[in-house]
Amino acid sequence: MRTVVIQPVFGEWRERARELLALRVPPEEVLWSEDGEDPGLFDILETASPLGDVPKVPAAFLDLARRVAAHRDARRWGVLYRVLWRLTFCGERHLLSLPTDRDVHQLQQWQKTINRDVHKMHAFARFRLVGKDEASNREQFVAWFEPEHRIVRLASSFFEKRFVGMDWSILTPYECAHWDGSKLHFSPGVPRSAAPDEDALDELWRTYFRSIFNPARLKVHAMQTEMPKKYWKNLPEAPLIADLISGSSERVKQMLRTEARPAKPAPKNAYLDYLRELNTPTQSPPEAPSQSA
């Protein structure tokens, strides 16, 4: 049994996995550890000579592995290596087409979690205007987000492509991403207090949120499935939710109590006359009224 200590990033796992494959080390002989202090470490990898080439793996596996690597579950490195081993040295090239395989299923579950985390970051990170760069005349925005997994790098290219015309930073507790109009770069995580709390537009956004809600079709569970409460503390509109829910029943009763209005007669209007003629077929189609009508 050997212990392999790695930094918890995909590139690092990939390097170690290649070395292990070259030495033909089967997965059951490897213990993966993210703990850099582990005293039991003695690195046999550097002293041993490789037994052969590293076989090629399907591109789909690398893509899957890159995403799974962002998950926080410590077992991921071992499962990834086992699947890699089975793909290359166990003749199971088709393994990824077997969603009922326990290892593949586990990887796909992790991948799903990561994809969801990335998607929610794209959805719920909220930029706040903090100023304007005098020299470049570019607006500067800062967002705060708390992802569950280590997804900042996976999620950033989306923001890079979308918000080219403004400077922005996305701050998270473990890593931050920054865009200055030409280059994306990353820096270590910061505490919540480093990000601004408010934006002048928040109130207008709350007005929109309040107005677009239809009290006659309350579906609180459907809302919470897609927007779980854990995100609410960083969403400017979330404080409105409780009142919108509790007030909805009274608003609907009010609508039902309102006396129904009769139809008013049509006003004099050339366009309405034209429509009416269209709706009653005649020999020749009517002329459209001119714009100034």
Binding site: H119, H122, A123, F124, F158, K161, R162, F163, V164, G165, M166, F209, I212, F213, N214, P215, R217, L218, K219, V220, H221, A222, M223, E226, M227, L235, E237, I241, L244, I245, S248
Partner: peptide, 22 residues
């Protein structure tokens, strides 16, 4: 990219919030 403004489309679409009507 290559422009001065903002914006991108393509892909699955994103829901940026949910109202209590679901």
């Amino acid at each position: 990219r290559g422009g001065k403004g903002v914006g991108s489309t393509g892909g699955a679409g994103i829901c940026h919030s949910y109202a209590p009507d679901g």
